[in-house]
Each structure stands twice: as structure tokens, then as C-alpha cells.
Amino acid sequence: MSYQEEFRNALSIESLKQDLLRTAYDNEGTIFNRLDPRVLLTWYAAFLVIPWLFYDMRILGGLLTFVSVLAVVSRVSKYLIALLAFGVITNVLLYAFVTVLMGGSFVQSAMALVPYTTKLTIISVTSIAVFSGMSPKNISRAFMSIGIPRQFTFAISYGYRMLPVLIEEYHETVNVYRLRSRAPESPGRFKWRYYVYLIRLSIRAFYPMIFDVAKRSRVTVEALETRGFSHSLENDKSRELQLGDLRVGQFDVLFMGGSLIVIVGIILPFV
């Protein structure tokens, strides 16, 4: 592969963009999205607690398997999972390694860290599965139902609206810079020249973006006024309508019940 070609592929924000969009927008129909968001939040809260109740690695392993299956089912980005796994493993190894430098034992410290790290991993996988499986609309309704003010829940759905637009705009801006800049003639050792060039462009491209977003924000807030947004803040009826079609259905009950059975099944053999 020629330098040009490699360079181009690495710069292909296009494929990255596609991956991002799929993560953010392709969650219709996942299990988590079909649940009532309030039920899901409760379930999630429970999973923040459950791992801490056990020390037995067999139970923790079982729980990790369970949430990993859920993560796979809810189509979590593989990139995120890989990143997480990498982080977890290197974390334990590095701590253990530095412990050796401090005169301790590698195995002993790794053993001390493994249960703790496993618990954290269970929680991280759960978080990623729940929040990438749930549509932002449901996330903001869930938060709204526990009393978080609308300005903040609106921020979530607004971010959902704008993310691809802003990324597209940013991509365009990087392209404008590319057409006016000079690419490094050769990539250099470890392609450092290419990385520096890329980072320099990425940083510079924010300058025009700031102006663009400033204009957008202004029109958006104007438009919010004309659409009765501030009216809705004091209006109970409006809040009721926004949360009105949330109801706990059969599927929610099945899911909670099913989870309970699985968890009991994981725990019982070992206590």
C-alpha cells in the first residue's frame, strides 16, 4: 500500500463517521430500548450494587458473562468493548508491575486487584450496554421522570440531533484546510510527521467551527422560543404529555423476572 493510500485511509473520517453514527443511531429495536426507561434505570441501579455483594470470582465471572451477553445483544460498538478490555487488562498488569518495583509481589498484587477490577468491569459493561442500547430519547425521558430539569434533558436530545451535523461540518472544515495546506512529503519515522500534520489540522479546524456553532446556537434558542419551549417549563400538562406514554408492560416484567432468575442461577450454586 502506498504512502498516499495509507494516509488517505487513516484520514478517512468517512468510515469513522459511519461507525460513530451506527453506534449512536442504530438502537431502535434493541432490548434495552423496548423497556420502560424507568424500569431500566432501576435495573441499572441494581446492577451498580450487585457486584459489590460478592467476592467469589466464580459468581463475578458469571455476572460478567451475563452482562457481556446483554452487551452483545444490544449491539455495543466493538471498538468500545476492545478499548475497555485493553484498559482493564493493562491496568492490572501495570499496577502489579510497579508493585514489583516497589519491592512487592507481582502475583499477590494482581490477585488483590482482580476481584475489584472484575466488579468495575461488570459495571462498565452494564453502563455501556444500557446507555448505548437505549435511545437518547428514552434516556432523556428516564432522566425527566426522576425530576431532572427539562433544560438538561433537552440537551441530550439536542446533542442527538446535532452530533452528525457537527461532525459533518467539522469534516468539511478539515477538508477546507487540507485543500490549502501542505501535507508532509514523507511520513517520517513512526509516521510522526503525518500524526503531527493530522493533529495540527484537527486543532485548527475548530476555529471556524466556533463561529459556525455560535451562529447556530443563537438561531436555535430563538427557534426554541417560537416553539413554546419556555412555555413547557412551567406547564405540567406538557410534562405529562412527554412522559404520558411511558408504561410498564409485559416485556418489562418479563425482563426483570428473567434477570432475577439468571442472577439467582449464577449465585445459588456457589453460596
Binding site: 430519547k137 436530545s157 440531533r161 438561531v219 417560537t226
Partner: peptide, 16 residues
Amino acid sequence: DVGYVFQEFENQLVTP
């Protein structure tokens, strides 16, 4: 009473 469609209508659309 008064509906308004902005010139920068893209920024007027605020939901997903």
C-alpha cells in the same frame, strides 16, 4: 398565532 420559518431553517429543527 404566528408561525415562523427561519432562513437558517436547519438550525430551527431542534429534535432528532
